[in-house]
Computed example of a mutant assay.
Amino acid sequence: MTSFQIRPISPAEHDALGEVSIRSYLEDGLLLGGLDDPYAPNLRDVALRAASATVLVAVDGDTGAILGGVTLAFHGSTMAQLAGPGEAEIRMLAVDPGAQGRGVGSALAVACVERARTEEGTKRVVLCSQQAMTTAHRLYARLGFERAPELDWYPLPEVLLWGFRLDL
């Protein structure tokens, strides 16, 4: 098993992370409309994410391949959907299906929490997750996140997103 590194994304890696994100969400059945799902363009447009938020990637130590990525948005960012004053928001955490089970998702989430702790005035990390993302829910619980039903919301009538929070 190869090692991996978590670091900020470079512009040359935007397309690769966009494709990893699409593969991850498709394989997990999270894009209800398949490639035509209205959320698919958001997953692909990593340049837009990186313009107003921090995008981190997990990179294979041997091959340099993108194994996964995540977006961390602070309050005021156009990428923040839930984050209020003093909060950071984890969004679009995705791991390539072939790299799942290696701790990539956990390492990306931990890196977000650590980065949020270094941002002055940040007191909480929030995120939302589809109900079906039970593996992710277990990961968040291991990191200390708690369900926050007051953050639940519907981006589409048939999709309920559950809110989670971690006080720093």
Results as ranks from 00 to 15, higher is better:
Q131H: 11
P11Q: 07
L43A: 01
D15Y: 13
L151K: 05
A51K: 10
M133Y: 04
L67H: 09
L17G: 00
L82E: 04
A107R: 06
E114N: 13
D15K: 15
L151I: 03
I90T: 05
E158I: 07
L43V: 03
V110D: 05
A16Y: 13
T135E: 08
D60W: 14
A116E: 02
A136L: 07
L127H: 00
C112P: 00
P97K: 10
A65G: 15
G69L: 04
N42K: 10
R23Y: 07
G68I: 03
W162R: 09
A141C: 05
E146P: 01
A58Q: 04
R49E: 06
L127A: 00
H75Q: 10
S21E: 06
D96T: 00
M79D: 06
T134R: 15
F74W: 12
E114G: 09
H137W: 05
M1W: 06
I22E: 11
E27H: 14
L56H: 00
A88E: 04
L166Q: 07
R102P: 02
R7V: 14
F74K: 06
R138D: 06
A99L: 11
G105V: 09
A40M: 11
L32K: 13
T2W: 06
L139S: 03
V46K: 05
L139E: 08
R124S: 05
L161H: 09
W153F: 15
P11Y: 11
T134F: 14
C128I: 10
E87C: 02
V110K: 13
S77M: 12
T63E: 11
G84T: 05
I9H: 01
L35F: 06
P8C: 13
A65Q: 15
P155D: 02
V125Q: 00
A99R: 01
I66R: 01
Y140E: 03
A107P: 00
E158R: 12
Q131T: 15
L72K: 07
V113R: 07
A51V: 05
I22Q: 08
M79H: 08
H137F: 01
A94N: 01
V55L: 14
S77G: 12
H14G: 00
T134V: 15
V59A: 03
E120I: 06
F4I: 09
L17V: 12
E150D: 12
G29R: 10
F164M: 10
G84P: 01
M133D: 03
M92I: 11
D28P: 11
L31Q: 09
L139I: 15
I90N: 05
V20F: 13
A47V: 07
R142V: 06
D60E: 14
H75T: 10
G144N: 03
S106Y: 12
L30E: 11
I22N: 10
R102F: 14
G101R: 13
I9C: 07
Y154M: 12
P155F: 03
V104T: 10
V125S: 00
A88D: 01
Q131R: 15
D167Q: 14
A83E: 02
G86Q: 07
R147C: 01
D62W: 10
Q131M: 09
R91H: 10
E150R: 10
Y25R: 08
P97F: 05
T118H: 05
Q5D: 14
A136G: 08
V104D: 09
E119Q: 15
